[in-house]
């Protein structure tokens, strides 16, 4: 039995503690917003937050996250997160959309520590996330837009 906190809820899980968090989220907790992309930490589709820090859930075992605070795309409730989601919609970022949960989780973690990132900061933080639709230019634009909205204190939609 492993105890974790997911999106503010305590969960007790009876699966192999070596199981990657990704599959615990998707198959035990039905939180399917976190995606399987490569399984080996190369694409970022499975990005979640562990105590606010971005982590690849495909390469993080359940045992490693015991008693830690996990946030998935479904639980992304911070102002920064909401601003990013709004900016994603406004900038028409998503195409197939499959990688975008991971992109937004990575961007939200970036902005939590760096509210007004430069292009270089964004490249450095986001280049671990693959998008096969090639939406990178718009992701960058959306992050800047969310930063601006945050700076001007604009309300989230």
């Amino acid at each position: 039995m492993v105890k974790i906190e997911v999106n503010g809820e305590q969960r007790i899980l009876d699966v192999d503690p070596a199981m990657p968090l990704l599959w615990v989220l998707r198959e035990e907790l039905q939180l399917t917003g976190t995606k399987f992309g490569c399984g080996v930490g190369l694409c970022g589709a499975c990005m979640v937050h562990l105590d606010g820090v971005p982590a690849r859930s495909c390469s993080t075992s359940l045992a490693e996250v015991a008693n830690r605070r996990i946030t998935t795309i479904e639980g992304l409730a911070s102002k920064v997160g909401k601003r990013l989601q709004d900016a994603w919609v406004d900038e028409n970022v998503a195409q197939c959309g499959y990688c975008q949960s991971g992109q937004i989780m990575t961007a939200a973690a970036l902005m939590a520590s760096n509210p007004n990132p430069s292009d270089q900061d964004i490249d450095a933080a986001m280049s671990g996330n693959i998008c096969r639709c090639g939406t990178y230019q718009r992701i960058k634009r959306a992050i800047h837009a969310a930063a601006e909205a945050g700076a001007s204190g604009e309300n989230v939609k």
């Binding site: 989601q85 028409n92 959309g97 937004i104």
Partner: peptide
């Protein structure tokens, strides 16, 4: 210019 499923593709609902 608004992709109709855009919101669902930013919050994990799609």
């Amino acid at each position: 210019n608004r992709r109709l499923e855009a919101r669902d593709k930013t919050n994990g609902a799609a």
